[in-house]
Design a protein around this nucleic acid. Structure first.
Lengths: 366, 366
DNA sequence: TAGGGTCCGGTAAGCGCTTACCGGTAAGCG
DNA sequence: CGCTTACCGGTAAGCGCTTACCGGACCCTA
């Protein structure tokens, strides 16, 4: 009864019980608010816990009641350079992850974050291992094949991002279609640009594919001339966007009146490259992004783009997953709405400009 | 022997053993490469594992061998606005966390990420709960009092970032002193600026305190005139930096020749505010940052700053922690070197100064 | 062919916690 | 005053895995 908190072996619920003069069952009940312990019992346990600064072992709890209260989110790490220069590319995924975390916290869950290198092999195996440590998995896109996902889904509930649901996994994504449609209409109809191009993201990205598809359909449909092809292949980052423009220019190609970039980072690179060649945005060439990352409005000129509720995407992913974990619930597919953000890179005038499409407000400044 | 992977209750090592016609011990041994199973045994187990797509339960393993292979990193989330506009402030901590993750992965560990809101109460309790789920804790600064940290350290190994070691916890930080000293000397001695100010970060940040202290000592020591006081109190983000400048200007104060900002984001805000008032950087006022976040070199003009090995900071934190987890090792304190990065916001001439990173699409633009 | 040494692989004992189950005590009632 | 009813709290059985320990099979040697 009197040899207290030596930093000897981790202390257990037995130690607490002993210290408080009750049984381990009582300690557990007090700690979890089960049953109806007498006030005195509760008090003794609490005091013992405090005096010993006892913390119950998560693994043991998890084993015992089959709930780890942890979900994992897995995504693809930049690429080549593991340490250097991952740049702004962090942003997008990190915001999603933050959303997951915030939502998870509301349910007392914690979040295991794991990135896989683009070059890593046996990705499926690594993820499977992670699956063993959690109650559910949130997978960013371009991580695993559909069958690999299905296999995982047999082990723990799985939510994918920006993909498509499978019979056993759920999916959450943004409404690329509507966003791209609004964007193209703004450029082609409102601004009257007759030639447009889509500077794509990585080819295997489902988001990119959807955007490309809608872009082409909508632009063609509106009677604009569309430039496409391998020379317009980017990779979602600034360097990619810049090099596409540079090559095009070096090859003597004539740029379209407006360039729709697969995402904001690409737009950033494009604007860089154009600036370096002395081409004015938006006067000579209009440029738009997709995502509305925070820096978008700090650009010169501020970037017209489509806002995705990025953090909410993550939060929603967790919620869907949680519904499945705690019951059989969980919608198999959720599509989040996006919003056209008109700033100036599309050719709209400074501050004053928005009366065109009333629905979408513009953010401004810092 | 023939009722396979129904999605019935999670399958266990017993199922695998049964399916393979061996004992659970053999399965475990094969899975962990212990002992020397006969080739045939190994093969049968592997096949069973594959056929059932079995994944061992992490909680059970953890309980059994006292190692969860998970560490947590905890940090303070932005603040007021939980969802909106957390902006670039993400960057810094996320890069650290990425460093932790990469290092952890090398040892087969995973990383639990948890942020605490600035307003959250009973933070210590939440962290304690997390402690129960992991083998070690990495705590960003300004999270917990020294005694709270000490208490935690009695439960699992703890590494703090940008703090100071305690008898029971370890610490990893960057060499603010040397960096700030070099920066101030560059401004005061190389450029000859006679009046300088330090636009501080949040008052309770140990990094900020160190920087402020050295700034003042070094500037005064070099004979420059130093502006200080509550009117120079920032908060590590762009809005804070901008509002300090705006207030100062509104109050009719005369700006010093050079403003040393507590970090890059503050500098970004300052440069915005100055630009809005038509004040030229660096011609009228020089501005410097601290951190060298990726955007720093895209600013107008490119930001002179002190590079901290941010990702390495995280990686080192993990390594120190790991050393303690897997043995009694682990240096109680590690100080990482920093590097002065001279660009143009300090007044140094353009292009010539930076053969540093030829790879990056040398940027401009805000 | 018998004895001793090697290997493998199986059995069973936990790891720290939750909780079903049950026995004891106290309160309520006839 | 004795019996029922309620309510607590203790005992013990797992949760799924690792591993110490031990027995059997096989091989080699004499």
């Amino acid at each position: 009864m009197a040899e207290p908190n030596k930093t000897k072996g981790t202390l257990t619920i037995y130690d607490v019980a002993h210290h408080a003069g009750v049984s381990i069952a009582s300690v557990s009940r007090v700690l979890n608010g089960q049953g109806s312990p007498r006030a005195e019992t509760r008090e003794r346990v609490m005091r013992a816990v405090r005096e010993l600064s006892f913390v119950p072992d998560g693994a043991a709890r998890a084993l015992s009641n089959g709930l780890k209260e942890v979900v994992a989110v897995v995504f693809r790490r930049g690429g080549e350079n593991e340490f250097q220069d991952e740049d702004e590319s962090l942003l997008f995924m990190d915001v999603i992850n933050r959303g997951v975390e915030v939502a998870a916290q509301r349910q007392g869950f914690d979040v295991l974050i794991s990135s896989v290198g683009i070059t890593d092999d046996n990705v499926a195996a690594r993820i499977a291992l992670i699956a063993g440590k959690v109650d559910g998995l949130i997978l960013h896109d371009r991580l695993l094949s559909a069958v690999a996902i299905a296999r995982l889904a047999g082990i723990v509930p799985v939510v994918t991002l920006a993909g498509s649901p499978t019979p056993s996994s759920m999916n959450v994504r943004c409404d690329n279609e509507t966003g791209m449609r609004a964007l193209v209409r703004h450029l082609v109809i409102d601004h009257g640009y007759r030639s447009v191009a889509y500077l794509s993201g990585t080819a295997d990205s489902p988001d990119n594919q959807a955007r490309a598809r809608v872009f082409e359909a909508e632009a063609t449909g509106s009677g604009a001339q569309v430039q496409v092809g391998p020379s317009w292949q980017g990779n979602y980052n600034a360097a990619g966007g810049a090099s596409v423009i540079t090559s095009l220019l070096d090859a003597g190609a004539e740029l379209p009146r407006a360039i729709v970039c697969a995402n904001d980072q690409t737009a950033l690179g494009v604007m860089h490259a154009l600036a370096r060649r002395g081409i004015k945005v938006p006067d000579e060439v209009a440029v738009t992004g997709f995502d509305d990352v925070p820096v978008a409005r700090h650009l010169h000129p501020p970037l017209t783009t489509v806002r995705q509720p990025i953090q909410e995407l993550g939060a929603t992913a967790f919620e869907v997953l949680y519904a499945r974990i705690s019951a059989a619930g969980g919608a198999p597919e959720v599509v989040l709405p996006v919003e056209l953000i008109v700033r100036q890179s599309c050719g709209c005038a400074g501050g004053a400009t928005l009366p065109r499409r009333p629905a979408s407000i513009a953010g401004h400044e810092i």
